[in-house]
């Protein structure tokens, strides 16, 4: 029981931590943006008039929700070179994370679209709006209201999930904890530091979500 908590031993590694935290942040941000785009595509596929397209969209969601991210990352990292595409650790992590998150994004967006009543489309169409205008001015603002909270949860989920990129040899915060811990034998300290980084990232998202939400959706603005 002679363990004493001291950060001094791991001070020299804080420079690497900065770089790792930047990797975590950029990987997460890119994956979130890209998976919203891919998720939107899948959500629209699930509303297609064509049955095979609908089924393909549904199958995508089921596969992504029922397969571990780690296995998807390994597939991207190991399979891509065999298909002739050489991906860096960052790119492999980004592709895997995006593919996986898009399955969840698609469901979030689909729920948002379902929540817009058909009468809203009809009212907008009957005013002569083009499809793009209907989406932009009537549908999107309402979808955004519905998906706002779950979207925030998914952003946090992606930040946490980005830690698995350590498995495809990306230097991010979890791998910083592991490598620095094993070279300094200061695992307690590296754990605390890594936990603080993630806590700060996730709680910033949380607090920003609440503050922005209060600004965007005052009472009475709800459907």
């Amino acid at each position: 029981m002679g363990y004493s908590f001291t950060l001094r031993t791991i001070y020299p590694y804080f420079g690497d931590l900065w770089q790792s935290a930047l990797n975590t942040l950029s990987l997460s941000l890119l994956a979130i943006v890209l998976s919203i785009a891919l998720g939107a595509l899948v959500a629209l596929m699930r509303r297609s008039a064509l049955r095979p397209v609908r089924l393909l969209g549904a199958a995508y969601v089921e596969v992504m929700r029922n397969t571990p991210l780690l296995v998807i990352l390994y597939l991207v990292y190991f399979a891509a070179p065999e298909a002739g595409v050489r991906l860096s650790s960052f790119m492999a992590a980004l592709v895997g994370l995006t593919l996986n998150s898009a399955g969840y994004m698609a469901e979030i967006l689909r729920a948002g679209l379902i929540a817009v009543p058909p009468g809203q489309f009809e009212a907008a169409q009957s005013q002569g709006m083009s499809s793009a205008q209907v989406l932009r001015h009537v549908v999107f603002p309402q979808v955004f209201r519905t998906i706002y909270a779950p979207l925030g949860n998914q952003v946090i989920a992606v930040i946490l999930a980005s830690s698995l990129a350590t498995a495809v040899a990306l230097d991010e915060v979890a791998s910083w904890m592991q490598t620095v811990g094993s070279s300094s034998f200061r695992f307690f300290e590296t754990f605390v530091v890594a936990a603080v980084v993630y806590l700060v990232l996730c709680q910033s998202v949380n607090i920003a979500r609440i503050l922005i939400g209060r600004k965007l959706f005052p009472q009475g603005r709800r459907a």
Binding site: P117, G119, E122, A123, S126, P141, Q142, R221, R222
Partner: peptide
């Protein structure tokens, strides 16, 4: 042509 619906269909976010 202006249309008025049974259930109003006002845009709730505006």
């Amino acid at each position: 042509v202006g249309m008025i619906f049974q259930h109003f269909n006002l845009y709730p976010h505006l």
